[in-house]
């Protein structure tokens, strides 16, 4: 009897020890793993300080008719908060000189100002709802905004090979559910460089709304990966929008004063 008890105690102790040893690794839940992947992708993109890029936006309707928008984007990394972003529109010609200034925040609403050159007016605009179309394209404001880790919860779904690359497939869910156009987004991130290769957007009724594919990744400053092409296809309305980025520059010396409300009035 006594020996049996002792055996049982040994067994239990061993099991507990084994559990303690292996629990941390084995217990990384899909939620934790999803967050860890998102954090790692974010960490790899931290430290670029500032960047400028030219963007050509090609809107294509159901019948294949295209229209074009051109803009320049200036970004300033802000430590401890979201980036400051300035979009300067060059075409269509009637909106030339219009500029959109966004202070992205990790928590709460972003701050946004629009500059209207015809009136020389700087206008504060509401940024609460992010599901609206950006410049009539298939990109919503939330698709092009600074992608802060804190704005979503995450879940790792599976690993799979996409486009010849080993990928994590994770899902993310907007925290601000009321003002996002999405229930969830499914993201393919390559395991080696943590680049986003594809995103499926599911609308609030959880049916597939759009698919974004990112192509032509290039490494800048030996560190930062940027896609040169993004194609957003809307499965529900048959429209699509292609973004072509060119002339990426990092660390060009942009300052806080280049992202002030005052600077909007003299932006060129």
């Amino acid at each position: 009897m006594k020996r049996r008890w002792r055996q049982l105690i040994y067994l239990l102790t061993a099991t507990a020890a084994a559990l303690f040893m292996f629990l941390p690794a084995a217990a990384e839940t899909p939620v934790e793993k999803g967050l860890a992947i998102a954090r790692e992708a974010d960490a790899r993109d931290t430290g670029f300080r500032d960047s400028t890029v030219n963007l050509l936006m090609i809107l294509r309707n159901r019948h294949g008719q295209e229209s074009i928008r051109r803009m320049r984007i200036r970004t300033l990394e802000v430590e401890g908060d979201g980036d400051k972003i300035l979009n300067i529109f060059d075409s269509p010609r009637d909106v030339r000189g219009t500029a959109l200034l966004t202070y992205t925040h990790k928590f709460g609403d972003d701050d946004q100002w629009l500059y209207l050159p015809a009136l020389k007016r700087v206008k504060r605009i509401s940024s609460r709802n992010k599901s609206g179309s950006f410049m009539g394209s298939e990109f919503a404001y939330e698709d092009i905004a600074s992608q802060e880790v804190e704005k979503y919860t995450y879940k790792w779904i599976r690993d799979e090979v996409y486009d010849g690359l080993e990928c994590f497939v994770i899902e993310r869910y907007p925290l601000d559910r009321k003002n996002s156009g999405y229930r969830r987004q499914m993201i393919w991130i390559d395991k080696k460089e943590y680049r986003t290769l594809k995103v499926d957007y599911y609308d609030r009724k959880d049916s597939l709304l759009k698919t974004l594919t990112l192509t032509g990744y290039r490494k800048y400053n030996n560190r930062f990966w940027r896609a040169s092409g993004m194609n957003m296809v809307n499965h529900q309305n048959g429209k699509s929008t292609r973004l072509e980025f060119s002339d990426y520059r990092f660390g060009v010396g942009l300052r806080d004063s280049d992202f002030s409300r005052n600077s909007l009035k003299r932006v060129r």
Partner: peptide, 14 residues
């Protein structure tokens, strides 16, 4: 005041 209704009734209209 101005109250904005972005993508009103999922119509794409602001």
């Amino acid at each position: 005041f101005e109250y904005s209704m972005v993508n009103a009734a999922s119509s794409g209209v602001d």
